[in-house]
């Protein structure tokens, strides 16, 4: 579950980082869809989100972050410690 406050903050931060209006930050927007959201832009965005929410995500959650909807879901959920990433394969 995410509250509207979290969703607004995530969308506003993405808009600010990508230099696009908040109205263009649709749920399915993700890396490669706008010029500024390239590989390096993706990491900068995640670092900015982690700083904004004061959370350091573990690898399994970081790998989930592909679209705006993922970011809203992950940063809106409670932190769950002890997560581990799955093995290759």
């Amino acid at each position: 579950m995410t509250d509207n406050g979290t969703e607004r903050r995530v969308r506003a931060l993405i808009a600010e980082n990508l230099n696009i209006p908040v109205s263009e930050v649709s749920d399915d927007l993700g890396a490669g869809r706008v010029a500024e959201w390239d590989s390096m832009g993706h990491v900068r965005l995640i670092v900015a989100l982690e700083a904004e929410f004061g959370r350091q995500l573990d690898e399994s959650k970081l790998m989930e972050l592909e679209t705006v909807a993922d970011m809203i879901r992950v940063f809106g959920s409670d932190e769950s410690p002890g997560e581990s990433h799955s093995d290759a394969g």
Binding site: E59, L62, D87, A88
Partner: peptide, 18 residues
């Protein structure tokens, strides 16, 4: 090198599985 920095940030030691 930037891609490795990025991959490590996003997936940690996951590549070790390969």
């Amino acid at each position: 090198p930037a891609a490795w920095a990025l991959l490590y940030k996003l997936s940690g030691r996951h590549i070790g599985g390969y």
